[in-house]
């Protein structure tokens, strides 16, 4: 009887904590999602201006999305989208190639400047990236890349040239591929280049996808480099500078709802890509060789 009682009270206690935990989590999720919900709701708002009196819009419309693709008086959203897309494609290919080369060499080969290189990469990443930004701009200007149609090229260089320092995740992954595979290939007479392309690269597929997507997302979310390099050339704006400039004081009244619409349009593909990277990342983390 006494035991039953303590059991019952323990159960009641457990149910109580369960309820508290679930309520707590619900509140957390509410707090986390409410701003995103708000932006989505206001992208359908018909009234202009930054704020209205109520939390939710009172009149709904699709006009903001339509204007984004038809009204080019200040900002040309489709062009900004295409600019960013081209830059992102090029820079993700280049930087993935660089990262793969460095990761393969540091993980698989023994050579004289291996350690010095790794130390240098670590030291360089400790400098604030913005410090060299102005100098990079001067350098690109001296190369004549900061005018007109060469601006996208300058941005591609900015996003991809230094990516040889960010090889740690890829190297860590390559370290898990058994060396025996390479040795077997050497015995069969393969050169190191063949081993790299025919054995290591196919084994790294999930990590390569992860790397490709992460570096593809870079230009979509960065706006600091873009702002310094592109300056006041609206035809070469990337999406992030475009959205940023919609919140400038002169534009914000007319453009706030359009900003919300643009934000939704950008967030959906980025979020989807992010979910995909997570899947590949988890796949990669579960090991290179299965079974």
């Amino acid at each position: 009887m006494a035991k039953n009682l303590t059991n019952a009270s323990a159960r009641r206690k457990r149910i109580a904590t369960d309820v508290i935990v679930h309520v707590f989590l619900a509140v957390m999720c509410f707090i986390w999602l409410i701003p995103l919900f708000w932006v989505a709701a206001h992208s359908f708002r018909a009234t202009q201006g930054q704020y209205i009196r109520t939390f939710l819009p009172t009149d709904w419309t699709l006009n903001n999305y339509k204007l984004l693709f038809t009204d080019f008086t200040h900002l040309n959203f489709p062009r900004m989208f295409m600019n960013t897309f081209v830059i992102a494609c090029c820079s993700c290919l280049i930087s993935t190639f660089l990262v793969l080369s460095v990761a393969y060499c540091t993980s698989r080969l023994k050579f004289k400047f291996r350690k010095p290189y790794m130390n240098m990469a670590m030291i360089i990443t400790m400098f604030p990236g913005f410090m060299s930004m102005v100098a990079t701009y001067f350098l690109l200007k001296a190369m004549g890349l900061t005018e007109g149609a060469k601006l996208p090229l300058a941005l591609i260089i900015c996003y991809s040239a230094g990516s040889g320092t960010g090889f740690y995740i890829m190297k860590g992954y390559m370290d898990t591929i058994p060396k025996a595979l390479d040795e077997a290939a050497y015995l069969d007479g393969a050169t190191k280049f063949q081993t790299f392309t025919k054995i290591t690269l196919p084994m790294c597929k999930p990590m390569i996808v992860y790397q490709l997507i992460t570096s593809f997302m870079g230009p979509w979310v960065d706006f600091i480099f873009a702002k310094v390099i592109v300056r006041a050339n609206p035809q070469y704006y990337t999406v992030s500078i475009g959205l940023w400039s919609m919140l400038e004081k002169e534009l914000v009244y007319h453009y706030f709802t359009r900003f919300c619409a643009g934000a939704v349009l950008i967030s959906i593909p980025i979020a989807t890509l992010y979910m995909i990277t997570q899947r590949f990342y988890q796949e990669a983390m579960s090991g290179s060789v299965k079974g």
Partner: peptide
């Protein structure tokens, strides 16, 4: 394999 990344880092990170 190390030449392109090192050139990239050298010119566009280290030099600036």
């Amino acid at each position: 394999l190390m030449t392109p990344p090192i050139v990239g880092i050298f010119v566009f990170t280290l030099l600036p």
